[in-house]
Design a protein around this nucleic acid. Structure first.
Length: 536
DNA sequence: CGTGTTTGACCAGCGC
DNA sequence: GCGCTGGTCAAACACG
């Protein structure tokens, strides 16, 4: 890339640059990446006298030609016939010179356009290679460090590319578990898997999933003999299966960052606290809950305040509910599923995602779905993928996202729950639009599993779902979408739209009195009290 | 008394 | 092998 600049800035063009720069202090760089046809136009500047001055390489001739014409036909016109004849002869000679100069300039322009295209190709290659290398570095870093949650490189990457409202993070949450997984699943007996991890694009080959295997297994302990036997049986069975349908011990996780003073976000399910631990690197304890809406429901969640910002509540869900969710959540379940499908259908979720990145069609997808690339880049990197929904940041255009309006800073209005069907339809349409050449998009098992987790974790509560929907919609649709569906808020920070957890219960509590509050059992007060003491 | 929380202990995995 | 850490269990406790 630099070569292009250097080679094209040498010679007369560079001298003229320097000259002009001395006189006016103007731009010395040439935009090589503007549209090929208007390269010359883009490099023109208007000097103080209104004349066009050409900057950059090979423009001297252009400037000369134009000046010849303007001076010949301009202010110093012929005064007499003789002078006119002489002028015509002179003009013919000048026309010939001008044509020659024009031809030379055109030839040079063609060369420059070709060079421009070549440089653009180089830039794209470099971009792709950088992305691939970054991911490799990321993977290596995570193998070497044991604290993926802290200053996650994915988050840094996303912060460069995503609107702040919704960070969809599909990354490994526990690197060491990969080794564990490989060990448990008999990696030595599955050379394909290990080889995949050692290849340059290894992170895209983590096609190990667990759709139908035990939805939740503790990394912990105290298994009964039956459990152990079942686990061993599962292991044996898994080792016999292809690597594309196994991840027997962990479900994908959904982590939600929400700014709330409440001790726990309302997600519509009933939870029973079964433990609390001090986690390393965080003065706030981590509370462990399991779903009690149905006997044997494997869903667990962890609730912890962010160490850096105590107002941020991090809730991590794991596992899939084995029971029906509240009916009012069905619509949003579809919505989140559609959103997850689209998020997970990013270009790099394919095995050759890096190669696809530069594909024109995919590039088009990036334009229409700006963070798909990020999702894709990260989606295949984890055996224990985690979707992180960051609802703590205002969906403002502070990061310069062009599709945002200043008004998004406004507090979102209470969202009518009638909106989600529209959003669901929209999301599903968008999911199709993202990959038009893959109309029958089929998620792999891991993606499907993650989708289920997303749905199960989020779908239960209208308020939570609304906030999530607002975040997703604001990111994906921008203001254009809001014009179509003005009832959808421009974004919502969970907990702000309906007050704190306790206060927010009223608006969402069903008439039948069934608990919608984030609580264990039917005692909201107890739950609040408990959580207040446990999450401080 | 039933239900849910608290909290210390236990266990497994991992790194050194 | 040892220590650290995350995750879970279960007895003790609190509350309605």
């Amino acid at each position: 890339m630099d070569n292009g600049h250097l080679s094209l800035r040498t010679g007369t063009g560079r001298r003229r640059d320097e000259e002009v720069g001395r006189r006016r202090g103007e731009i010395k760089e040439v935009d090589f990446f503007s549209a090929g046809g208007d390269t010359g136009t883009r490099s023109q500047k208007v000097d103080g006298g209104g004349r066009r001055v050409m900057h950059g390489c090979h423009n001297d001739e252009v400037h000369t030609g134009l000046d010849l014409m303007t001076t010949a036909m301009g202010a110093a016109g012929p005064a007499t016939v003789g002078e006119e004849r002489a002028g015509l002869m002179v003009g013919t000679e000048k026309n010939n010179k001008m044509e020659a100069a024009t031809a030379a300039v055109e030839a040079k322009l063609r060369r420059v356009v070709e060079e421009n295209l070549r440089l653009r190709g180089m830039l794209e290659d470099l971009t792709r290679n950088y992305g691939a290398l970054y991911n490799q570095l990321h993977q290596v870093t995570h193998h070497q460090q044991g604290h993926p949650h802290r200053h996650h490189p994915d988050v840094l990457l996303m912060n460069n590319q995503l609107p702040p409202t919704l960070h969809v993070l599909l990354g490994r949450t526990k690197p060491r578990s990969m080794q564990s997984y490989l060990t448990r699943t008999g990696a030595p007996n599955t050379p394909t898997t290990t080889q995949q991890f050692s290849t340059p694009m290894a992170q895209r080959e983590y096609e190990v999933v667990a759709a139908d295997l035990p939805s939740f297994s503790s990394g912990g302990k105290r298994r009964t003999d039956q459990d152990e036997a079942a686990a061993l049986e599962t292991r044996d069975r898994s080792s016999e299966q292809s690597s594309s349908d196994q991840l027997p011990f962990r479900k994908p996780r959904v982590s939600v960052r929400a700014r709330s003073e409440a001790p726990m976000i309302s997600d519509g399910c009933q939870w029973r606290k079964y433990g609390q631990k001090m986690a390393k690197g965080n003065p706030c304890p981590r509370a462990y809950y399991r779903c009690t809406m149905a006997i044997g429901c494997p869903v667990r969640k962890q609730v912890q305040r962010c160490a850096d910002d105590r107002t941020v509540l991090i809730t991590t869900y794991e596992g899939n509910h084995n029971h029906q969710l509240p009916p009012q959540a069905t619509t949003m379940a579809n919505t989140t599923s559609a959103a997850a499908a689209m998020l997970l259908s990013g270009p790099a979720t394919s095995r050759d995602g890096a190669a696809l990145f530069g594909h024109p069609a995919v590039f088009h997808h990036h334009q229409s779905f700006p963070y798909a690339s990020t999702v894709a880049t990260l989606s295949a990197s984890a055996p224990f993928p985690t979707i992180t929904l960051d609802l703590t940041q205002p969906p403002a255009g502070a990061n310069g996202m062009p599709h945002r309006m200043p008004s998004v800073q406004q507090q979102p209005p209470a969202m009518p729950f009638a909106a989600p069907p529209q959003l669901a339809m929209y999301l599903q349409q968008r999911a199709s639009a993202v990959l038009p050449d893959r109309p029958g998009l089929v998620l792999d098992a891991r993606q499907q599993s993650m989708m289920e987790t997303v749905t199960a974790a989020i779908a239960a509560d209208p308020n939570f779902s609304t906030a999530l929907a607002a975040a997703i919609s604001s990111v994906m649709a921008g203001d254009a979408h809001r014009q179509d569906h003005p009832s959808i808020p421009r974004g919502s920070t969970f907990g702000e739209g309906h007050g704190d957890g306790a206060a927010g219960v009223g608006s969402s509590t069903p008439a039948d009195g069934s608990p919608v509050v984030a609580a264990s059992g039917g005692s909201p007060r107890l739950a609040t009290q408990s959580c207040t003491t446990s999450i401080t």
